[in-house]
Amino acid sequence: MSVVQTETEQPVAPPKAVVLELRDFSFHGSSENSVRFTDINLIVREGELIFIQVDPRLKSREFVSVIQGLKPATRGKVLFQDCDWEGNDHDRHFRMRSKIGRVYEGHAWVANLNVAENVTLPGLHHCVSIENDVQHWAKRFGLTQLSNKRPAFVEPSQLQIHQWIRAFLCKPSLLVLEQPMHYASSTMFPVLAEAIDEVRQAGCAVLWITNNPGFPDHSFDPSATYLRAESENLVAFGEGMNDE
């Protein structure tokens, strides 16, 4: 069993609130190419950024679905803001999920809605007004407006940027980014990194899952924690590292 505590070492300040906790967590997935974990513990606090590097042959989608309470863990508990995903209180579960922004690996769109409708759907469903938020993040990521085409007719790099906007809307408490740079131009990395720094300052915890062995140089503020999924375990391989 590995215990990975990612607390920011600030002895003066009280520890920040825990956003996500995996307790004695095991997950074996339904397919062979699903990322697996056995008896891991992970605590992610407000404002923290954690990179999890997974084998390029493995998919993280199911694992993130477990984090969001969409699938059950094989063993152990997943706590989001001290609440678990158990029971039949679906309203509570949907409210909890509305606080999680996610960039999906693989299929991420409702095919019969256009991209703009897809992006604004969760925001409009949960928030009172999202117009300013949409404009802010679209401008931030270099878009003048959201695409009005169906996802099938938009090129993947643009779709990926629209995914970023959707994930950042409505001030999420947790951002889960599965391969966020997939299809996106590497020139967009600093833009995404700066956006992540901004939401972290506001208290958002960020979980960045990648299969890329190296990251472009960027000094995250505060520094990030780097973990590697290895032998069904999470192994720390550097803290505050921006270059491998």
Partner: peptide, 11 residues
């Protein structure tokens, strides 16, 4: 896509 809606907190 139904799981996607679920993941976005849309019942």
């Amino acid at each position: 896509e139904v799981e996607l809606l679920d993941a976005e907190g849309v019942d």
